[in-house]
């Protein structure tokens, strides 16, 4: 069975840069941007998108609900 493939979309303005998603990602997908959002926070992004399995761990621990997760299972 093929590995599920996923992607996350971060609501940049909602992200407060707490990095809790970073340590919760089992495949080390997430990094923090150099640039900041309008509130001055570095925000999460997919640094290694090819590793994302769409497991939703990052989204469920995000206190601000800033992460949306997509996943496709290869046919």
């Amino acid at each position: 069975m093929a590995k599920a493939k996923g992607a996350i979309v971060v609501d940049v303005e909602r992200c407060k840069g707490c990095e809790v998603c970073v340590v919760n990602c089992p495949t080390d997908v997430i990094g923090m941007t150099e640039q900041v959002n309008t509130k001055g926070y570095h925000y999460a992004y997919m640094k290694y998108p090819e590793n994302c399995t769409g497991c939703t761990n990052c989204a469920v621990v995000c206190p601000d609900g800033a992460i949306t997760v997509y996943r496709v299972k290869p046919q």
């Binding site: 996923g6 609501d11 303005e13 909602r14 407060k16 840069g17 707490c18 990095e19 809790v20 926070y41 769409g54 939703t56 989204a59 469920v60 995000c62 206190p63 601000d64 609900g65 800033a66 992460i67 949306t68 997760v69 997509y70 996943r71 496709v72």
Partner: peptide, 24 residues
């Protein structure tokens, strides 16, 4: 392909909590 999104029962308001706080 959507598997997780913020519930629409949370309002659009930005949470007043500090970054990383469990309240949210």
């Amino acid at each position: 392909n959507l598997v997780y999104r913020r519930t629409p029962l949370m309002t659009d308001a930005t949470l007043s909590y500090c970054p990383g706080c469990g309240h949210g």
